[in-house]
Amino acid sequence: MKLIYFAWVRERIGKETEEVTLPGEVRTVAELLQWLRARGAGYAAALEHPQVIRVAIDHEHADHQTRLPLDGEVALFPPMTGG
């Protein structure tokens, strides 16, 4: 699965994108955030307050209860400030 990060989530994690293979028990967006937090200090800092993190799956907004696709692109980012 491809992960892609934006704004301060990208800066804290220290990379724009990465490919990951998820363990079988990581099935939802919330479980993905939990799993990522344990991957290092940058991830822990970026995902310290997981409830504020916005998520898109294959270019569409998704909530934290959404089931992850088997493959695809999952984006993590802060609340948007466009316009």
Binding site: A7, T81, G82
Partner: peptide, 25 residues
């Protein structure tokens, strides 16, 4: 809807201090 749903993020560059904070929603 564009303000809260379109995936854009603003970072401030300050006149006296260079790159600053991300604008908060």
């Amino acid at each position: 809807y564009l303000k809260s749903r379109a995936p854009f993020w603003k970072k401030e560059h300050l006149t006296d201090a260079g790159p600053g904070q991300w604008v908060e929603a």
